[in-house]
């Protein structure tokens, strides 16, 4: 857990952004618990609440990268805990596939992360965000960022 480099004013384009898809019943609640417990994590993450991670289409992931997101987190109920019985089975399959697909495309697969976070795992949520933020920082901004088109289009 490195400290946030607030002193130096970075170029906005260098700054990373993370998008998190959180399922309403477990991971969104886990994030709520992280808040209630005042667990601190870096403010580079914005979240989208969905009822179930089974609804997170591959299109959303591609769209996020298209829009210049540097890392996408999908967090849902542990297998067996799904409020909708098996919605997260689809998530498990889809995300495993998508990570490998990103690798084929030439996008680091570490930019997509799947985590199971229960409503009681506030600490886990916070540490996942800390860790993921560090990871994405280390990878740097996404090679797909529009302002870096020239890199992609050589």
């Amino acid at each position: 857990m490195n400290k946030e480099g607030t002193a130096e004013k970075k170029d906005e384009r260098e700054e990373i952004k993370i998008l998190a898809f959180l399922c309403n019943w477990c991971s969104y609640a886990g994030a709520d618990l992280a808040g209630v417990s005042r667990l601190q994590y870096p403010a580079k993450v914005l979240d989208v609440r969905v009822m179930c991670t089974g609804t997170v289409s591959p299109y959303f992931i591609i769209k996020a990268f298209q829009e210049g997101i540097d890392g996408v987190l999908v967090a849902g109920c542990h297998i067996g805990d799904c409020h909708y019985l098996k919605g997260n089975y689809m998530t498990a399959k889809r995300m495993r596939f998508l990570k490998e697909a990103l690798n084929v495309f030439g996008i680091e697969k570490e930019r997509l992360r799947l985590e199971w976070v229960s409503a009681a795992e506030g600490e886990k949520f916070a540490s996942v965000i800390r860790d993921f933020t560090e990871q994405i920082k280390a990878l740097g901004p996404s090679p797909l960022r529009k302002d870096r088109e020239e890199v992609a289009k050589v």
Binding site: A31, V36, R38, Q40, Y41, A43, D47
Partner: peptide, 24 residues
């Protein structure tokens, strides 16, 4: 959700927290 997902988890960086709140 600018409390559980923002002000409470970014207490030490109010500027970044404010910025995040805007985008939320």
């Amino acid at each position: 959700n600018i409390r559980e997902h923002c002000s409470w988890v970014h207490m030490q960086e109010p500027e970044e927290g404010t910025r995040k709140a805007r985008y939320l």
